[in-house]
Design a protein around this nucleic acid. Structure first.
Lengths: 197, 197
DNA sequence: AATTTACGGTACTTAAAAGTTTCGTAAATC
DNA sequence: GATTTACGAAACTTTTAAGTACCGTAAATT
């Protein structure tokens, strides 16, 4: 066994609590102001930290916000496992709109908006949020393949059909994201993917 | 008959050609730079116009870009009418991704991004583009209701299921918008909305 | 104790872009 | 021909925010 020696550096160690405060503040400001309007001054002030401290540990504003997003969504929205395809999908969509209509929804909007002007933010949003959620959901659905789920169904397409309409409403805002709506969406999609006995 | 007298004002009349140049330039700059990075200086220079002329006729930058969008998309994407529900949907989605993967796609991205930080841009995008297209498509589909289209299908939901996945891919960028993809999407959706004989 | 690195606070530099103003000139009406 | 309104060009004002630099101080190692 190799000892996990911290190998502490020489001077004063990094203030981990300040790091936590900065990331939490970044998330709040992002939520309230959007990506472009989330200023480092506002983040520093809310965190009771110095702007110099922020730039001491992150190369730029986007890096702070990306790390804040990563920490915030790390454990969010695990795909359910009720044993029923229909129940799993209903639950997953209901849980997702709870996120989208809450604080997190504003954060997602902010990131998608920023992604249109910055390829790095775009890639970060996909790798931190989109891909992990899709991978998890696909694994959850794969269990039903050939059983209640028709074996030919393309799960990539299915992800788009389930999540696409929700992002669409979130970002375009032409209609609200209600439970009634996602239930109807789930039923419409299920009609074309379930294996009839 | 009342004469349509132009009721010309006193001084030099507005240069309609300059107006055209400005709107065309605005569209090009928007396409290349996005909404926030589309500067009035760049628009003026490309239009060989003066910035003062722009602000003489539009209250701000957003108003110019909204009018440019309105003119650009006025006649775009009419819903097909082949007599076949299946053909109409396939055609409509194929035509739509032609727009999204071309110059117009960049413009839509820019508007959706800007909409997240500006309610007026958001409303403008919906009223200029989203609502007219949805209304037209719903009218086109309504003709099939009770025939090849199951009579219970909610067209609002259907719009979201058809267009949502495309906006989703456009804005998140996790996968490309190909004809093969929209054909598969169309077939998946059709499976749940067609009336079986 | 000397040294090293981090901290919060604050002032500063720099850059970019929105919108305004001015100026000399062009095209219309009266 | 006098007046009115529009034009392009360019200089200008103003605002905003990113990122840097410096201060005195705090917490660690040597």
């Amino acid at each position: 066994m190799i000892e996990d020696v911290p190998l502490r550096a020489r001077g004063r160690p990094r203030d981990e609590e300040a790091k936590t405060r900065i990331l939490a503040a970044a998330l709040e400001v992002l939520e309230e102001q959007g990506f472009a309007n989330a200023t480092t001054d506002a983040i520093a002030e809310r965190a009771s930290a110095s702007k110099a401290t922020i730039y001491r540990w992150w190369p730029n504003k986007a890096a702070v916000l990306v790390e804040a997003l990563r920490e915030a969504v790390a454990q969010e929205l695990p795909f359910p496992n009720t044993g029923s395809l229909r129940e799993d999908i209903h639950l997953q969509l209901r849980n997702f709109i709870k996120l989208l209509t809450g604080r997190r929804g504003r954060i997602f909007k902010a990131f998608v908006a920023a992604a249109q002007n910055d390829p790095e933010v775009s890639e970060a949003f996909r790798s931190v949020w989109v891909r992990p959620r899709r991978t998890d959901a696909k694994a959850g659905l794969e269990r039903y393949r050939g059983l209640s789920l028709r074996h030919e169904v393309d799960l990539e397409l299915l992800m788009d059909v389930l999540y696409g309409p929700l992002y669409y409403r979130l970002l375009v805002g032409h209609a609200p994201l209600t439970q009634k709506y996602v239930d109807a969406l789930a039923e419409l999609v299920l009609r074309s993917i379930v294996k009839k006995p």
